[in-house]
């Protein structure tokens, strides 16, 4: 059972949280300007990373805040927990630059 450091409350057991999938997927500003393929890409396609993964967690049984976690999907080791990056793409751009 993971120990997750909620950026607002501190370290808590995984059972207090709910998972929100991959983080950093920005909602298109004008969905109707997108082709069906582009919209489907936003809607369905996920990285499914082996290794470091940015994901959303919600402290559902605590402060109810959503935040981001960087976690290794192989070892499950959590590297970092932090508040939502805004705008949603900023960290994504950063990690692509890395």
């Amino acid at each position: 059972m993971l120990l997750i450091a909620c950026p607002y409350c501190g370290e808590r057991a995984e059972t207090e949280f709910s998972y929100g999938g991959e983080a950093g997927i920005a909602r298109p500003k004008d969905p109707h300007a997108l082709s069906d393929e582009q919209w489907a890409d936003y809607l369905f396609m996920r990285k499914n990373s082996r290794g470091m993964h940015r994901e959303l967690w919600n402290h559902a049984q605590g402060c109810r805040r959503w935040f981001e976690v960087e976690r290794d999907t192989v070892s499950y080791v959590i590297k970092e927990c932090y508040e939502i990056a805004t705008p949603a793409t900023s960290r994504d751009n950063q990690s692509r630059a890395d």
């Binding site: 929100g20 983080a23 920005a26 959303l56 919600n58 559902a60 109810r64 805040r65 959503w66």
Partner: peptide, 10 residues
């Protein structure tokens, strides 16, 4: 939770 998700992340 769904409303909070959009309010907080997007």
């Amino acid at each position: 939770s769904w409303l909070e998700l959009w309010l907080q992340t997007e």
